[in-house]
Design a protein around this nucleic acid. Structure first.
Ligand code: FES
Ligand code: FES
Lengths: 146, 146
DNA sequence: TTAATTAAGGACAAAAATACCTTTAATTAG
DNA sequence: CTAATTAAAGGTATTTTTGTCCTTAATTAA
């Protein structure tokens, strides 16, 4: 479904939302450990998420790290997909035609359309906070721990 | 969503189902042109689909080519995904955890689950024939023609 | 100011996916 | 049988994705 980059971006943002604040920033090392991802690659992805402060923030130096503001916790998950350039999933044809369109539909178009709509809905209505709260309250996981 | 290989496999099989019969086999060249795919790469994918005659059949030599039997047209699309080893989409965690499970669910698991079920349903209930008939009767496309 | 810490940024490496090409085997027509 | 045709099979090349490493910049504390 998603690329590794996107999966790490989603898991990392959820973790940052759970554990960080302006006063308590999280280091790359802590984040990568918490979400079971390769640290160096994760660094690149976090850079995308901090670009233009679009989703998360970062500070260098001692006690620096990554954090998210209360305001940004209300961003929809879709924002994360945009940040890592995987937003186009929702425009794509399931059979790989260059354009998914109503006027030149593929044989699966009309059956896939409602499913695609639900996927879009899922990523547009759920905020970062929704997921991190859920993960806090219920017994949910963002790593492969035993 | 799917890899290029899977997209080509689906489009190729639909085309073969539309145009071929035991008497009228289709050459690699014709198929690749019809579905807008790179011929050499398509050859590899068709090999996977002919392996053990799992979805389509092939004959070498003059007037040889690829075809599908009436019986095999009743196979579900899922069979094509299995042939190209992309069947695991339906077991995967949307956040990339190693196991998608009810006992160790990710924060999106319970919302993604019904969508995943609909996807599975789509590929299990639709047969190859269903799609090729639809493409015949309605105005549906399996290439990028203008 | 200096040393320590932490992310940013760029170059590089490995792996996987995609695509191509050449040779071989099967089949058919003449 | 021979030549032509077509897929099978294998190797190779290219591109994209994934992952690493090293240097630089920013920040902090002493
Ligand atoms: S044209 Fe294929 S999904 Fe819309
Ligand atoms: S555990 Fe993530 S989708 Fe099931």
């Amino acid at each position: 479904m998603f690329s590794k980059a996107t999966e790490y971006a989603l898991r990392a943002t959820i973790y940052i939302s759970q554990k960080s604040s302006v006063e308590k920033k999280l280091s790359l090392t802590e984040i990568a450990e918490a979400i079971d991802s390769p640290p160096s690659f994760t660094a690149k992805i976090l850079q995308l998420l901090t670009k233009d402060n679009c989703v998360i923030h970062s500070v260098r130096g001692p006690n620096g790290g990554f954090y998210i503001t209360e305001k940004d916790k209300h961003l929809p998950l879709k924002k994360i997909l945009e940040a890592v350039n995987e937003n186009d999933l929702f425009d794509k044809c399931i059979l790989g035609l260059k354009k998914c369109s109503e006027t030149k539909p593929c044989p699966l178009h009309f059956q896939y359309k409602p499913i695609k709509q639900e996927l879009i809905h899922l990523f547009q209505t759920n905020t970062i906070q929704d997921l991190s709260e859920k993960a806090d309250n219920e017994s949910l996981f963002i790593n492969n721990a035993i």
